[in-house]
């Protein structure tokens, strides 16, 4: 599968939550935080799959 661009639309309240996480060092920027969330959720999902 190739690289892919996704546009995530967030309102100012959602941006605030994301920016707070970024400010605390959870990721380098908003996009990086979203990618971190994706990777961690995918890892969790595959762990659940193995457990079954």
């Amino acid at each position: 599968m190739a690289e892919r661009t996704v546009i995530v639309r967030l309102n100012q309240q959602q941006i605030e939550l994301v920016d707070r996480a970024v400010a605390r060092g959870a990721a380098a920027d908003r996009a990086a935080l979203i990618r971190r969330a994706l990777r961690e959720q995918a890892a969790k999902s595959s762990r659940r799959g193995e457990a079954r």
Binding site: A2, I7, V8, R9, L38
Partner: peptide, 22 residues
């Protein structure tokens, strides 16, 4: 007013596959 902003996220090939999976 509730205002929206677009965040452009570029997924690597691996991440794109994860995205499709979950």
């Amino acid at each position: 007013p509730i205002l929206v902003e677009d965040v452009v996220v570029t997924l690597s090939a691996d991440e794109a596959a994860m995205f499709e999976a979950i």
